[in-house]
Amino acid sequence: MRRTLELLSVQLRASVMLAVQYRLDFVLDLFIGLFWTVAAVLPLFVVYGGAASRGVPGWTFGETLLVVGCFITLQAVIDGAIAPSLSTVLDHVRKGTLDFVLLKPHDSQLLVSISRFQLWRSAGLVHAGIVFGLGFRELGHGPSLLGVVEAALLLLVATWMLYSLWLVIASVAFYAVKVDNLSSLFTSIFDAARWPKTVFRGAFRFAFTFVIPLVVMTTFPAEALLGRLDWATLISSVVGAAALALCARLFWLASLRKYTSAGG
């Protein structure tokens, strides 16, 4: 465990050094990140604005802002911590340089998972904070302490799920070499998570709850903040995430056995 934390701190330091080397990029990225947040929130104002629009069925403006807040939080986590590391796996497999990771005396899944961080993306967390603030101001009351704890737990669960799904995508690289755009397919599906669950009906609701659990990731934490989440949902979310993580781990190990390196 101590060794794991040591490794993590080394990688974080390396990422910080890399980030301060490219200062202009850093500033540009901050601005573009702001644009994306505005682009995420703007449709909301249109959906709820105007006399004739009633907004998403069953969700008020403030409540939907909480869902968007969860969405922006998770997007920052994906772009900052999950995607950069795991997309290096795709490169490693294609070039055969995964050898160097496998030779190191530590668990390979851990090593590839912490290999790169894009720390400026954490600016997204600030944006999310602002959106949460707007949401609660609109609602006129703050969350209960229990609600905050539950929501934090659920966001961790969501991170765990996203990590597992990404690990599965990275593992597919061992079978099909060209999967760069598989990851962009996932990113674009994740865009659907910015809306509360009532937007999805019928087969979509089922798919986004149980197959690609977007509803679990953003609607459930928002419901927790609103004090509407029951214990059974919370517990089954945790169990579901654990099952997903286990499957992803097994798939990673099975895929590693497929790895044959490349070149000479």
């Binding site: 105007g50 629009s53 998403v56 069925p57 755009n181 598989l182 962009s184 397919l185 990113t187 659907a192």
Partner: peptide, 29 residues
């Protein structure tokens, strides 16, 4: 590869789900 790129254009479909869920409750102006 091209088909996967095409499939990645899910945003209009998500927005379609959103707006139809609103419009089903009554016409939007």
């Amino acid at each position: 590869e091209m088909v996967v790129w095409v499939l990645s254009t899910t945003m209009p479909l998500v927005m379609m789900l959103l707006w139809t869920s609103i419009a089903d409750e009554g016409t939007v102006r």
